[in-house]
């Protein structure tokens, strides 16, 4: 086990191992996605209040969960990179940013599309929506900062600090619907008393959540591989790999 992690820390082995995992993770993701879509669009019953419009939830909610989850992973990886100077952690942090930004964007836009027919407005400046929009700007800031700094190591350090600073926004997003009154409704699945969602609606929600997690894992490895190649372009193993192809 220890040897496995040691190998994963070496860019050459990471590149090889990640290459082997990507197809399997991708396949698992597609299977969960198909199951989730079938359960969510066909099996799940119509909602008593919102009719069929609530089916937007099966993309909106997992995307919003991912936007928070990926940010925490990015900040944690950034912190590990800062403290232990682990190159692979820096790679994971920077490879996470564009994926997190896309899920945040997806959560915001699908939320807007859901809000129009149900609330009667595309957008309102309540605490939940505003803090989620700030999250998008944090992701974009991380990406922009990384692109602005020429040296990869310096860039990684600067973006890690920005990512760690932004972590305070995560509990604010999560608790915004409880700390302040908002137009956005409170949590359904993570509240402590009995879950207030029908089982046939909860199953596709969880299936989609797993599918999105697998999607993140797959794309993270794909992005991390490219980043590793770029960073190691002057090493012997990359030059050999290039001449062979």
């Amino acid at each position: 086990m220890k040897r496995f992690f040691h190998q994963l820390g070496s860019p050459k082995h990471f590149y090889r191992i990640a290459g082997r995992w990507i197809p399997w993770l991708g396949l698992a993701c597609v299977l969960f996605l198909l199951a989730g879509l079938y359960q969510g669009l066909v099996v799940a019953p119509t909602d008593y209040q919102q009719g069929d419009s609530y089916r937007i939830m099966f993309v909106h909610v997992p995307a919003a969960w991912m936007s928070l989850f990926i940010y925490v992973v990015m900040a944690a990886a950034g912190a590990i990179g800062l403290i232990w100077h682990m190159k692979l952690a820096e790679v994971v942090a920077i490879a996470s940013a564009p994926i997190g930004a896309s899920f945040t964007f997806l959560a915001l836009v699908t939320g807007s599309i859901w809000g129009k027919p149900m609330w009667g407005a595309w957008w309102v400046w309540d605490a939940r929506l505003t803090s989620e929009l700030i999250l998008l700007f944090l992701y974009l800031g991380v990406i922009a900062l990384h692109n602005a700094v020429e040296d990869k190591r310096t860039a990684a350090r600067a973006t890690s600090i920005l990512a760690i600073v932004g972590v305070v926004n995560i509990p604010i997003i999560h608790y915004s619907v409880e700390w302040w009154n908002t137009l956005h409704q409170g949590p359904t699945v993570t509240k402590f008393d009995a879950p207030s969602i029908d089982m046939r609606m909860l199953i596709p929600l969880l299936l989609m959540a797993v599918a999105f997690k697998l999607f993140y894992a797959t794309v993270l490895l794909m992005r991390a591989r490219v980043e590793v190649l770029e960073r190691e372009r002057n090493t012997r193993w990359v030059r050999e790999l290039v001449s062979q192809s």
Binding site: S53, H60, I99, S102, F105, T110, P117, F215, V219, M222
Partner: peptide, 27 residues
Amino acid sequence: MGGYAAYVWSSYGLAAVVLAANVLAPM
């Protein structure tokens, strides 16, 4: 979709586009 076709399908369509872009970009 019970009259909400435009909203539901545009959400799912957008999700498909965003996911596909995420796979194609690193490739």
